[in-house]
């Protein structure tokens, strides 16, 4: 999908500009939640971390895992997620891991990068909607969830704020005509 197509409906773009799909999930009392420990197996965790680094890879700046997104994912998936969100997440992950076995006869994390990318693209393809900001009641499927979590964890990390973006905690003044070329990246605040 081209960005300009996506931007066609501004209701879609700006209506969701400040809302986190994560925060729209249906509330479930804490007592009904599963225990925190042992939510992910080592293999699931390794696959989830690998997906994060495929989404935000190392380039001229560090990638997701170097920025500590692994800890962020552990926290959100194990502690912050409600059970319905966790079920959706792991169902989608299981499907992708099963496809890895089916197509290549190996676990996802043992595959070549191009094969992993193809599987993650297939997961993305299953969740394409006409409205990219339609995350549904449980905040989208596995792909939308891992992508949103990786991006959020990355840009709010110290690496994401100070290396990928430019962090200026005390700007001192406001310049409404400042040139993007002077900074070359997003501001963090």
């Amino acid at each position: 999908m081209q960005r300009r197509d996506v931007l066609k409906s501004l209701a879609v773009v700006l209506g969701g500009a400040v809302s986190h799909s994560c925060s729209q999930a249906v509330e479930v009392p804490a007592a009904q939640r599963v225990a925190v420990a042992g939510v992910m197996t080592d293999e699931q965790r390794a696959a989830v971390y690998r997906c994060a680094d495929l989404i935000i890879p190392v380039t001229d700046t560090p990638g997701a895992i170097d920025a500590g997104v692994d800890e962020f994912l552990d926290y959100v998936i194990s502690v912050w997620y409600q059970e319905d969100e966790r079920e959706v997440f792991f169902a989608g992950l299981a499907q992708m891991l099963a496809e890895a076995q089916g197509a290549y006869g190996q676990h996802f994390i043992a595959l070549k990068e191009s094969e992993q990318v193809a599987l993650l693209q297939a997961a993305q393809g299953r969740e394409l909607t006409s409205n990219p900001l339609d995350f549904g009641e449980s905040g989208g499927g596995f792909f939308k969830k891992i992508k949103e979590l990786t991006v959020t964890g990355y840009y709010t990390s110290k690496v994401g704020a100070t290396i990928e973006r430019k962090y200026v905690p005390m700007p001192g003044f406001y310049d409404g005509d400042y040139k993007f070329s002077e900074v070359g990246r997003l501001w963090a605040k």
Binding site: R3, V6, V13, T59, V117, P132, V151, T152
Partner: peptide
């Protein structure tokens, strides 16, 4: 200008190009 929180949701894909695209702010609103 729109920033990573919105642009990441309306920009399909992932990987190095996706990351590079998010380094620029989105359009003015």
């Amino acid at each position: 200008r729109l920033s990573w929180d919105t642009m990441s949701k309306i920009t399909p894909g992932f990987g190095a190009d996706f990351k590079a695209g998010l380094r620029k702010p989105g359009p003015w609103y």
